[in-house]
């Protein structure tokens, strides 16, 4: 049992990282802190996906040393390369995450222009006073 826990140590650390992000999204009152927590959560998920494609043993990065037109026509053994499918999927996820962060920061600037603060409790108080 202990060996099972220790052999998958990276998954446990990813879960810890994900919980740090979730805590920041739930418990922090500053909106920029919430956004940082969202970034941490996303990178934890991306780390988990990339770590699925890792192989141990006699493997190397998925780059061919020779092209097909240099007289090196030997067959490519897939078992000697890492799985590139999670890499390309998560490459897209990184770009999407930074685009999300950019849109969220633009919304934060608009919120600051209207309320002159970025603290969630102060914004809720201003809204309550305007409502009554």
């Amino acid at each position: 049992m202990l060996e099972l826990l220790l052999s998958k140590y990276n998954y446990w650390l990813y879960v810890i990282l994900m919980m740090i992000g979730l805590y920041a999204m739930l418990a922090k009152r500053n909106l920029v802190k919430k956004l940082i927590g969202m970034n941490i959560f996303q990178t934890a998920v991306i780390l988990f996906y990339v770590s699925i494609g890792v192989k141990t043993g006699d493997v190397t990065v998925p780059i061919l040393p020779y092209g097909h037109h240099h007289g090196h026509e030997q067959a490519i053994n897939v078992a000697h390369y890492l799985n590139p499918l999670p890499h390309v999927l998560m490459l897209t996820a990184i770009v999407v995450s930074i685009a999300t962060a950019g849109v969220a920061l633009a919304v934060l600037i608009l919120i600051y222009r209207r309320y002159r603060t970025l603290e969630e409790d102060e914004i809720l108080k201003i809204n309550q006073e305007a409502g009554t």
């Binding site: 970034n39 990178t43 990339v50 494609g53 890792v54 493997v59 190397t60 990065v61 998925p62 780059i63 890492l82 590139p84 999670p86 890499h87 390309v88 998560m90 490459l91 990184i94 770009v95 995450s97 930074i98 962060a101 950019g102 920061l105």
Partner: peptide, 20 residues
């Protein structure tokens, strides 16, 4: 071993993200 993801992270997330 995910070198393409490492390049993207260094330029997009560590570069553009910090600037934003």
């Amino acid at each position: 071993g995910a070198v393409d993801v490492a390049f993207t992270e260094a330029t997009v997330s560590a570069g553009v993200g910090t600037v934003l």
